[in-house]
Simulated assay, not measured.
Amino acid sequence: MKARAVITTIGAAATLLALTGCVPNATSSDASAIAVDSSADACSVSTNSASSGTLRFKVTNSGDKVTEFYLLADDGLRIIGEVENVGPGISRDLVVQAQPGDYFTVCKPGMVGDGVGNAAFSVTGDKVKLAGDEQEQVDAAATNYVAYVKDQVAQLVTGTDAFLAAYKSGDDETARASYATARANYERIEPVAESFGDLDPEIDFREADVAPDKEWTGWHRIEKDLFPPAAAENGGVDYVALTPDQRTYYADKLAENTQQLYDAVHASDYTVSIDAISNGAIGLLEEVASGKITGEEEIWSHTDLWDFQANLEGARVAYEGVRDIVEAKDPELVKTLDTRFGDLEKQLASYGSLDSGFVYYNELTQAQVKELADGVNALSEPLSKLTATLVA
């Protein structure tokens, strides 16, 4: 996902309060508010910078559709705050306590699609003390992470539908080209899918993981059909392509399961615990170590590095969501994790990006694979301490 990309349909609370602190909506006067005008095709913010501390964005909808406004972290993925359901002619406030750093602002007229007016926003000054007690900070972290999960699953539905439309129509070139990127939203939040029983096996199991009495469905069933193996890579048997009816069956099954995941995370009672967030970060690195580094995840397409990148991004978002809470308890652990995340991200970036594409995994040398494995291990060891520190 590009850093300038924006979020899709989110059913989160009207105002998400950043982990940096929840702030009552009535604290700032109109004179000090940052004006935001959301129209049909623009998101005009009265300034592109502010000083650290309590910020209030006064969002006015001058368009003819209900709109939303978001403040995103510098990765374009993590949601710092949002205000939704701003009707035409109505003004609503988003109040956050912002730390120094780089952010993005964006509006979403109609509350669907990619949004408009994505722009850089910077916060200068000194770091400010977290607002509220630890429980309030934990609650804010959980609220923001739920919004992130909903965003990623909403994008997954859209991307999967486009991919499956090409696949069912027989446009294999388009389907192969979009296969790896369409999966990225799933790979970022895979531990969430795993929490819903059979959904992850039905969506993402590899052939080798499926029990003999179970039906093999999902992404990797379609992967094998799009990237058919030679007989030597298929147990000595020539691969038989799926018929059009079979393609439709497996495509519809994947679409149905993906919609079930969307419905599950958009349920009114869906929430996450603070340890689930940190354990999710740990689990995503374990996914890299157990599947991506071995090359077994994408055994036919060899697009493992795309999955690797998405897993790493998802782990970073989960970690960043609880980082400030952990820093107050173990600043040295946070310092180490910041460094190790940066090192591994830089290492992986040398092979490509989600936007431009990566080197196919079967083109890496053994030395390059070992170097990536060493980077994963270097991050996994301190990351494994995250939950224990967080809940101590």
Rank of each mutant, 00 (worst) to 15 (best):
A165M: 07
Y249A: 10
E313P: 01
D64V: 12
V265Q: 03
W300D: 13
Q135R: 07
G342C: 08
L285G: 00
L390S: 06
L337D: 10
A177I: 03
Y249N: 11
V334H: 12
L156A: 13
N362H: 12
S278D: 03
D263H: 02
I10M: 12
L348A: 06
D213R: 12
I274L: 14
E233W: 04
D307L: 04
A35D: 15
S384T: 12
D161V: 07
T387Y: 02
K58D: 15
E187C: 03
P100S: 04
D343Q: 12
A131W: 01
K2R: 13
T336A: 10
A177R: 11
L305H: 08
L305V: 08
S29Q: 10
L156W: 11
F358D: 07
V317R: 01
P331G: 07
G357C: 06
S44V: 15
G357D: 04
F205N: 15
Q152P: 01
E327H: 11
A315T: 04
V96Q: 11
N185H: 13
Y351K: 06
Q309P: 00
V95E: 00
G11V: 06
K214R: 12
P244C: 02
Q368M: 01
S278P: 01
Y103A: 06
V240W: 04
S122L: 00
V106L: 01
F121T: 11
A14T: 12
V192W: 00
A378G: 02
V45D: 07
A131G: 08
R221T: 05
D307C: 02
F358K: 00
S29T: 14
V192H: 02
V6G: 15
Y361S: 00
S169W: 02
A14V: 09
D30H: 10
A231V: 03
A267V: 05
T15G: 10
A119R: 14
K168R: 11
A162T: 14
R221N: 07
V265A: 06
G125C: 01
V153A: 03
E296N: 11
A231L: 03
S62W: 09
T67M: 08
N279Q: 13
T336V: 14
E320F: 04
S278Y: 00
Y179K: 04
L372Y: 04
K385Y: 10
K346R: 11
A211H: 00
P191W: 10
E233T: 11
E134N: 05
R176H: 09
Q152G: 00
T174C: 03
E194Y: 00
E345Y: 02
A3K: 13
K346E: 13
S301D: 05
K346S: 15
V334Y: 08
G132V: 05
